[in-house]
């Protein structure tokens, strides 16, 4: 890691104008690259002998909702197994067309990680062989790690049982329980009115 600045310079030289920004922060090299021609850029990062980032360490996304434009950043962490150099590659993706090219052709590891990003952020990966939800179920609606997805929203696959007794948590958005309570209240009110 002694030659941090040369690494960034080398990346700039090899990727050319695909690089939007390159800097070092907290000892880590960060580059921001263009979304177009993404696979080509990564191919160079992987195959150029001076860089040799042959290991896709991590692939994720961050939602900068209301903080940054474009809204999403797909973040790749690359590692060169020979030298232990790392680089973080960020690709800005707008909200209107949340799509980037898939890296499955370069690293098979991208398969599941891209599925996870699609599952959690709704960012599509063009050319992915099998882009399905991975951690959540197919019936799930919305993308939970987007900042505009409410944290307490519940969408159970099987209707939740209404809770009874001491452990009823009224803060939870238990729709079914609320509905049942409402119905019971209505029933009670109806009975009362009849009696009255």
């Amino acid at each position: 890691m002694a030659d941090e600045i040369p690494q960034l310079e080398a990346i700039r030289r090899i990727l050319g104008d695909a690089v939007l920004d390159a800097h070092t922060a907290r000892g880590e090299d960060v580059i921001v690259i263009r979304r177009d021609g993404l696979v080509e850029s990564f191919k160079r990062l992987k195959e150029d002998p001076a860089l040799a980032f042959d290991f896709l360490s991590d692939l994720t996304a961050v939602d900068y909702f209301g903080k940054k434009e474009p809204r999403f950043e797909v973040v790749y962490h690359l590692l060169s197994l020979g030298s232990g150099r790392r680089v973080r590659v960020k690709v800005p993706v707008g909200e209107s067309s949340p799509e980037v090219d898939s890296l499955v052709s370069l690293w098979r590891a991208a398969d599941w990680m891209e599925r996870e990003v699609w599952d959690m952020f709704g960012i599509r990966f063009r050319g992915h062989p099998d882009l399905r939800r991975i951690l959540l179920y197919e019936e799930f609606r919305g993308y939970p790690l987007r900042k505009d997805y409410p944290v307490n929203q519940r969408q159970p696959l099987v209707p939740e049982r209404a809770l009874k007794g001491t452990f009823v948590d009224m803060r939870s958005n238990n729709k079914l329980a609320q509905l049942k309570q409402q119905l019971e209240k209505q029933k009670l009110a109806g009975a009362d009115s009849k009696r009255g």
């Binding site: 991590d58 994720t60 961050v62 903080k67 973040v75 962490h77 098979r108 590891a109 599941w112």
Partner: peptide, 25 residues
């Protein structure tokens, strides 16, 4: 992979889970 926006709460916490990736293989 942590992202901070300068507040007292994390903006994004991402874990690279080794066995999730191994299960992919």
């Amino acid at each position: 992979y942590l992202v901070s926006d300068g507040g007292g709460r994390p903006y994004r916490v991402r874990v690279r889970p080794p066995c999730f990736i191994a299960m992919g293989a």
